[in-house]
Design a protein around this nucleic acid. Sequence first.
DNA 1: CGGGTGACTCGAC
DNA 2: CGTCGAGCCACCC
Length: 113
Amino acid sequence: MTLAKEKSFFDRVYEVCRLIPVGRVSTYGAIAKYISLPKAARMVGWALNKCETAQEYVPAHRVVNRTGLLTGKQHFGGSNIMKELLQSEGIVIVDNQITNFDKVFWDPSKELQ
DNA sequence: CGGGTGACTCGAC
DNA sequence: CGTCGAGCCACCC
């Protein structure tokens, strides 16, 4: 799939996040890598922090750090909303850690090329 | 315009 | 094996 390269970094992050299939998750680094900025993983998280400003809904709960840990949980209203959402999609989480992370991991640079 | 920020990542000790 | 530190870069104020 080809994404508009004219758009800003943020917009690309939002687009990739929306492309994440239900029941799957991705990582900040993987997304950053897909948009040709593998070292901008922090920017991805920051972009998701402002995902509410995006014109369309962004499933930011499907994006975790590269270990499968829900580091962004606290930014989801301060509750277990992120965990609840992921579990409702079939993802198993124990202590904010995705247990079957290897199976649900979705790499845009591989799945989306 | 310049500095600060951040939901990350990787390497060193 | 676990913890700590520094680099990274586009966007906001």
